[in-house]
Design a protein around this nucleic acid. Structure first.
Length: 574
RNA sequence: CGGGACGUAGCGCAGUCUGGCAGCGCGUUUGACUGGGGGUCAAAAGGUCGCGAGUUCGAAUCUCGCCGUCCCGACCA
């Protein structure tokens, strides 16, 4: 391919909307163009990269017995009613009607569709286990797309679904999938990927892991022990706190005029925030009030709370709802909540501490010396506190580190979550009808490309690993109007093509710096430069994009060297 | 959905406060020179100033409404 004909202009300056490195280089390098918020066209460079990522995914899915299928993007909404998710998910699911006024949706994932196949095609334990996968587009009507291809509304995803006759078999396969994912991310060149415990969220199921590419622009927050033995999404992370108990002192009502926040109360009473209790009110999916309480120096973790409550939605409660349960906003007391009007969930940081300052349930008053076991009759105790960096690791006890990550993949043990409502059954050896046990496994393709860019770039552009580079070699002919340069470069171009090396050839009559800048933005791992200077020595210049190597070769040697390196880099073995 | 910023040529921006010919740099086209990190000179093409109303002799500029994009938060397999 000649660079002059490559569609996708390189830009000297980044468009204003681009913030993160991958977003900047996707736009500057001519990889992708925005069509609407969170909706992109992939230009040839990006499509070459994603095609290579997809090929790697296919190989690894096939290796663990995957069978590729292709399910539709447009699905009847009734399928989503069958699974029960039509009412669980909100506006992210784009719903519309077809010409016959039939309610339809754009698939945001394909559990329902694959269940429909499973129940019509899988009848016997003899067919199990099996796994179906596809690489297909998904649409999620995200409230806030961001960071280029990292969070988009329409995207390409590899999604896989496995079916099993037993929990043991599901768990065994889950391990295989986990290993396949590690191979995939290694092969695409992601250097910092960790699998972490995660929230199952709307997918449901018992066990799940997220694969996180560590990157500062990542939107997920991870907590890790320094030795890496504990890794969890902040949504589920726990800490091994120890709380000190003291002899309970008598309750004492104190005047705290106008002091509503923890900061104000603690400062006014000259106490540490650790000596206070913080009340936070929510409304669950049924609009029932939830009273959540953590120690004053903690924050309520809504993911953990949601999971504990078994609800998919939580919203902050307004003052009216709080008052309706007999609580005073700003001065809420855990002792005066009408039990039938609110669910009270108390974090161990409160339940296991002594003599805390809490609200007195009337304006401008707090209590000192609140003790959960003495002062509260009925409440649920659950870990609902957000873990902070520095908190003690639940495994090693060391201070936890906080990192940011891009979720490039995830795997779930779904069990019967979908097979039961959708009636996906098979007959076991005894002829009994049973529900299929399912696992599901996703990888975001475009997001993976962006994550590689985030992890592998310099000030001039992406530095692609050979395995997914849009081109393997960038050939520059400097001063190409000189016949000897053109002749030598043309010959190199031809030889490389004949050797089936993927080469981008820049024979434009441009200044060296201009051409090098374009080459940096395209990011091919190897570069050859032909110029009057190199030809004076009968040679061409060889460079690696990462700057680690530079050498002069005779032409034939150069071709041989390139072939050798391309082959070596792609010859992946496990 | 809450808060903030922005919308003028393909990209980056000035002009808007204080109404009066639509500008600059880069990129693109043509030619010459140049030749190892976005070069120089000359010429050229390229605009419903986000959209719609209104005020005015006159609106990119003032007023009202709408749309879009980005950032922070909420939300999110």
């Amino acid at each position: 391919m000649k660079l002059a004909q490559l569609v996708g202009q390189r830009l000297k300056e980044a468009p204003r909307e681009a913030g993160t490195p991958s977003h900047v280089y996707l736009l500057r390098g001519g990889y992708a163009r925005p069509v609407a918020a969170g909706i992109f066209t992939l230009l040839p460079l990006a499509r070459k990269v994603t095609a290579k990522i997809e090929a790697i995914i296919r190989r690894e899915m096939n290796r663990i017995g995957g069978q590729e299928v292709l399910m539709p993007v447009v699905l009847p909404e009734e399928l989503w009613h069958e699974s029960g998710r039509a009412s669980d998910v909100g506006a992210e699911l784009l719903r519309f009607r077809d010409r016959n006024d039939k309610p339809m949706v754009l698939a945001m994932t394909h559990e329902e569709a694959v269940c429909q196949i499973a129940r019509s095609e899988i009848f016997s334990y003899r067919q199990l286990p099996c796994m179906l996968y596809q690489i297909q587009r998904k649409y999620r009507d995200e409230a806030r797309p961001r960071a280029g291809l990292i969070r988009v509304r329409e995207f390409s995803m590899k999604d896989a679904y496995s079916f099993h006759a037993s929990q043991e078999d599901l768990e065994h396969y889950y391990q295989q999938a986990h290993q396949a994912y590690e191979r995939i991310f290694q092969r695409v060149g992601l250097t910092d990927v960790v699998s972490i415990q995660s929230d199952t969220g709307m997918m449901g199921g018992a066990v799940s892991h997220e694969f996180m590419a560590l990157a500062s622009c990542g939107e997920d927050t991870l907590l890790m022990s320094p030795d890496g033995s504990y890794r969890a999404n902040r949504e589920v992370a726990t800490a091994a706190h120890s709380f000190s108990r003291e002899e309970p002192l008598p309750l004492e009502k104190v005047h705290t005029p106008g002091k509503q926040t923890i900061e104000q109360v603690a400062e006014f009473l000259g106490a540490d925030k650790q000596r206070t209790g913080k009340a936070v009110f929510y409304l669950d999916a049924d609009k029932k009030l939830v009273y959540a309480m953590v120690r004053g120096d903690f924050e309520v973790n809504e993911s953990k709370l949601r999971k504990h409550l078994g609800t998919l939605r939580l919203e902050p409660a307004d003052e009216g709802a709080i008052r309706a349960a007999g609580a005073e906003p700003g001065y809420a007391s855990p002792m005066d909540i009408a039990q039938d009007k609110a669910r009270m969930v108390i974090d161990p940081s409160v339940a296991e501490s002594s003599n805390l300052i809490v609200g007195a349930n009337e304006p401008d008053y707090h209590y000192r010396n609140f003790n959960y076991s003495r002062d509260v009759k009925e409440a649920e105790i659950a870990d609902i506190a957000t873990v902070r960096p520095g908190d003690p690791c639940p495994v090693t006890g060391e201070p936890l580190l906080e990192k940011r990550g891009i979720e490039v993949g995830n795997i779930f043990q779904l069990g019967e979550k979908y097979s039961r409502p959708m009636q996906c059954t098979y007959l076991d050896e005894q002829g009994r009808e049973k529900f299929l046990l399912m696992g599901c496994y996703g990888i975001g393709v475009g997001r993976t490309m962006a994550a590689v860019m985030e992890q592998s770039h310099d000030d001039y552009g992406p530095v692609w690993p050979m395995s997914i580079a849009p081109f393997q070699v960038h050939l520059c002919a400097l001063n190409s109007r000189k016949p000897e340069v053109r002749e030598a470069a043309d010959r190199l171009y031809q030889q490389l093509q004949e050797a089936e090396v993927e080469v981008i050839y820049d024979d434009r009559n441009e200044k060296a710096g201009f051409m090098f800048s374009d080459a940096d933005l395209i990011g091919a791992p190897l570069r050859l430069v032909v110029s009057p200077k190199t030809l004076a020595q009968g040679q061409v210049e060889f460079k690696t994009r990462d700057g680690s190597e530079k050498a002069m070769f005779e032409q034939e040697q150069a071709v041989a060297e390139i072939c050798k390196r391309v082959e070596a880099a792609l010859n992946y073995s496990t």
